[in-house]
Computed example of a mutant assay.
Amino acid sequence: MKPDITISYCPKCGWLLRAAYMAQELLTTFEEDLGGVTLRPSEIAGSYQVSLNNEVIFDRKRDGHFPDVKELKQQVRDRVNPGKSLGHADRKPEGSPPAQ
């Protein structure tokens, strides 16, 4: 069974479009690895969380910022398909020389 992602967002803060964009990016990148992405309005003001099979992998309040797409894709990849290349969105290996 493929894992599911839930993006919980504060509707009063106007974060639906941000959540929808993140969902689109995840579904496009992990179309063969995910069972689906659910958008869920939160009852908690200021909340923005991303969960993978009920494990919170990103929390705006805990982490102190919104995830950027690259960061979120890396976190999801590390959990659902560690061998998957994310192309230009991949983190640089430790000790690799800077791009010229």
Results as ranks from 00 to 15, higher is better:
65 H>L: 09
62 R>S: 15
23 A>H: 02
16 L>I: 07
4 D>G: 06
25 E>V: 13
63 D>P: 13
51 S>T: 12
84 K>A: 12
15 W>Y: 10
84 K>I: 08
18 R>K: 13
77 R>C: 05
60 R>E: 06
99 A>P: 11
55 E>C: 06
47 S>M: 04
81 N>F: 00
54 N>A: 11
97 P>A: 08
17 L>N: 10
31 E>P: 00
99 A>S: 12
15 W>M: 11
90 D>V: 10
59 D>H: 09
31 E>K: 12
99 A>Q: 08
11 P>L: 09
78 D>P: 10
76 V>R: 14
84 K>G: 04
76 V>L: 07
14 G>D: 02
42 S>N: 01
33 D>T: 12
37 V>I: 14
62 R>K: 15
49 Q>N: 11
94 E>S: 08
56 V>E: 00
71 E>L: 12
76 V>D: 07
46 G>F: 05
85 S>A: 04
7 I>A: 02
39 L>F: 08
23 A>Y: 00
66 F>V: 06
6 T>R: 12
90 D>G: 14
88 H>N: 10
31 E>Q: 13
48 Y>K: 05
22 M>I: 13
89 A>V: 01
11 P>I: 10
21 Y>S: 11
25 E>L: 11
1 M>F: 01
11 P>R: 09
54 N>D: 10
97 P>V: 08
14 G>I: 14
15 W>R: 06
10 C>K: 00
25 E>Q: 15
19 A>M: 08
38 T>R: 14
14 G>L: 07
57 I>F: 03
96 S>L: 02
92 K>T: 11
58 F>M: 03
72 L>H: 03
47 S>G: 01
73 K>F: 00
96 S>N: 02
98 P>G: 00
80 V>P: 03
53 N>V: 07
80 V>E: 01
15 W>A: 08
74 Q>E: 12
71 E>I: 09
13 C>G: 07
72 L>Y: 13
67 P>A: 03
57 I>V: 14
55 E>Y: 09
87 G>Y: 00
78 D>C: 00
86 L>T: 06
8 S>L: 08
20 A>Y: 03
16 L>S: 05
2 K>R: 11
20 A>M: 04
55 E>W: 06
54 N>Q: 13
37 V>G: 03
58 F>R: 11
16 L>Q: 06
